[in-house]
Nucleic acid binder design. Structure first.
Lengths: 149, 149
DNA sequence: ATCATCTTGACAATGATTCTCATTAAGATC
DNA sequence: GATCTTAATGAGAATCATTGTCAAGATGAT
């Protein structure tokens, strides 16, 4: 409905392509660095603009890491939430009809209208769980806790 | 349990007092400005440090506005979520046992462990709903849309 | 009062995001 | 295909919240 027309450009295509390849959340800075590494030079400002436009148009979800950085990910349309591995960044889309109805109920009970909510779940995926025999596949870019110390 | 000891100082007391008076979410910058306006000079860095310490110790909740700014609020202990008016900032603490169990279920089903989640609901409270006969009480400091221009 | 330390504060440093504005490139027109 | 209108881009400056630095100040114990 309110999907403003966007001119197809090389830059936009490059951003979309990379988002499609990387299945997990990525920051604008990260995306910019990867494109540059690929030889696909795209201005940083353009990356930000493109990402925001895509998020507005839908097709891309944006959420904030614990330190406030915005990260983006290509997503199926429709309302859903995410289960994100804080170690390797692996993301699983999840739906919660019960949560949706709960928020609606809570909202109306308190006289709130025109509501929207944010819900993300962070944890360690099977591969990154210490007690798991499988070796931690923490080589992808983590969303929240980059390998420290 | 891991509540590190903190020396009682004038600055810490001032921050705590203001948080108690203002019942809604407030940014560190905002808090700093208010304290300064009250004549209670407290360094900006100190405000940040104090707020983070309080959030760590519990007793203060922190969440991020849509533009990534961290906002704090004195809160009852225990896990809960918030229903925040995006116009006047009024906040209601809500609990959702169903949501907690849902996230646990989803997490285990996907092999995730050590999870935690964030859930906030934003909307317009009764007083700020346009169709409501009551005049919008949007004079308190809004969490997301501060009076601009 | 004195000491060892935790805190504070002023300001520099970071780092993500936004703004500016001249240049480039789509899409429509002739 | 040349031309024109205008959105899109890019390089870098500008913002702005947040963090780091480190000397000076305050607190609790001695």
């Amino acid at each position: 409905m309110s999907v403003t027309f966007r001119r197809p450009t090389r830059q936009r295509a490059a951003v979309e392509a990379l988002l499609m390849n990387i299945g997990d959340f990525m920051s604008a800075q990260d995306l910019h660095a990867r494109l540059r590494a690929q030889g696909q030079g795209v201005g940083l400002a353009t990356v930000y603009r493109t990402l925001q436009a895509m998020a507005d148009d839908g097709g891309v979800d944006m959420l904030r890491t614990s330190d406030g950085e915005a990260v983006y990910r290509r997503c199926s349309t429709g309302h859903h939430h995410h289960l994100v591995c804080r170690s390797c960044g692996r993301t699983v889309e999840v739906e919660g009809p019960a949560v949706e109805s709960w928020t609606d109920k809570i909202s109306s009970e308190n006289g709130f209208s025109d509501v929207h909510h944010t819900l993300e779940i962070f944890g360690l995926c099977a591969s990154c769980t210490p007690t798991d025999p499988a070796a931690p596949a923490a080589d992808a870019d983590p969303v929240e806790a980059p390998a420290k110390d």
